[in-house]
Design a protein around this nucleic acid. Structure first.
Lengths: 203, 203
DNA sequence: GTCTATAGAAGGATAGAC
DNA sequence: GTCTATCCTTCTATAGAC
């Protein structure tokens, strides 16, 4: 039944997502995915011919999901400061729900940079840049933002949001040693990060 | 000969370092390491009984090397601002020489958080904290730094320095699309990062 | 579409000669 | 200390019955 097919394929895909994110491409085992989905290995190969194809499907889905999370930066009709606050609040909230995604994506990109280049191909960053400038033209006089430092600023914002999750094992370990809780640290970070960046760029 | 032993063990260790950093624990193959070292698999097991033991030796060496790079933050007798400039200059320079280390370490920590906890065991962060406060007591009135925001600040500084390398594949890809060079971006980052953080914390 | 059984290859580890 | 040969397990992938 087509209805049933859909369900099985969906179950496999979700199981694969969990296992790949947890173990990475190299560490994941087809048997684990099959068990997780409540089926056998043969059925995995029936729906997705190879481990590679299954992985690519999962990776692409997650990468798109993440890239989409950056869209508001270019779309929302807000002032610079409101946009920064909005971004950190929403983006960190997303990572709270998906704390393992940063480590997974960054690792797999480094193992195979070509994979992400394929996805970036259809995004035109030049135009996004221009769009941003256009949106905030009137405001820019109040900030230390130039065309030169724009990439540095963007990478720094991403770093401040993503890094605590990419380095979760390490940071959690250190925080524990001084009696602090990682989840509380992250919750407070939404505010801290916004204030920090705004202060840094204000003239 | 003991002299020769040392050389072989050293060669194996260096080959293992290269392969593990490049492929990760799961992706690395004992055969690759053997070939890289110019010997055969049996000899690997003669010097380091298992792949796990060989990996642990490599991981620990690299982790120590990295942790050591943070020492100047607590030791150097400099003003807050000078220390921040010094840190970004030296730390990013180190990562320029070892661009793959962040991705490697962060990934392996997430796969096995227990590994890093063993290493953190002998470091007393509470004391380092106090030491920092003591060193800069006189200066602190000029900055927005409290005991509460100290961890947030430290993580942000680490993030700004480390993230571009941990996400190198992605950032390099995006920069290329707008006609920028990753290495130039990193070189400029030493200055940008220091100025950015100092501006953010100054009262 | 789903299962069992198994082929076929790869990888970690060891035995034993030199 | 170093090598060749080989064992044994694990893993991806497929054949074939239902």
């Amino acid at each position: 039944m087509t209805e049933n097919d859909k369900l099985t394929e969906e179950r496999i895909f979700e199981a694969a997502t969990d296992v790949f994110v947890d173990k990475g491409m190299d560490g994941a085992r087809m048997q684990d995915i099959a068990s997780y989905a409540g089926i056998n290995k043969a059925l995995l190969h029936y729906y997705f011919r190879t481990k590679d194809q299954l992985f690519n499907a999962v990776f692409e889905m997650i990468a798109r999901k993440i890239l989409k999370k950056f869209a508001p930066v270019f779309d929302e009709n807000l002032t610079i400061e409101a946009k920064i606050r909005f971004f950190f609040r929403e983006h960190i909230a997303f990572l709270q729900e998906n704390p393992k995604l940063p480590g997974f994506i960054l690792n797999e990109i480094n193992r195979n940079p070509a994979r992400i280049k394929k996805l970036l191909k259809n995004i035109h960053f030049e135009k996004l840049w221009e769009k941003l400038y256009e949106q905030h033209k009137a405001e820019l006089d109040n900030y230390n933002i130039t065309e030169d430092t724009m990439p540095q600023l963007m990478v720094s914002i991403a770093a401040i949001s993503v890094f605590p999750f990419a380095a979760k094992g390490l940071i959690e370990g250190i925080l524990e040693k001084v009696g602090l809780d990682f989840n509380k640290f992250i919750e407070e970070r939404k505010e801290f990060a916004a204030a920090f960046v705004i202060k840094a760029i204000k003239k």
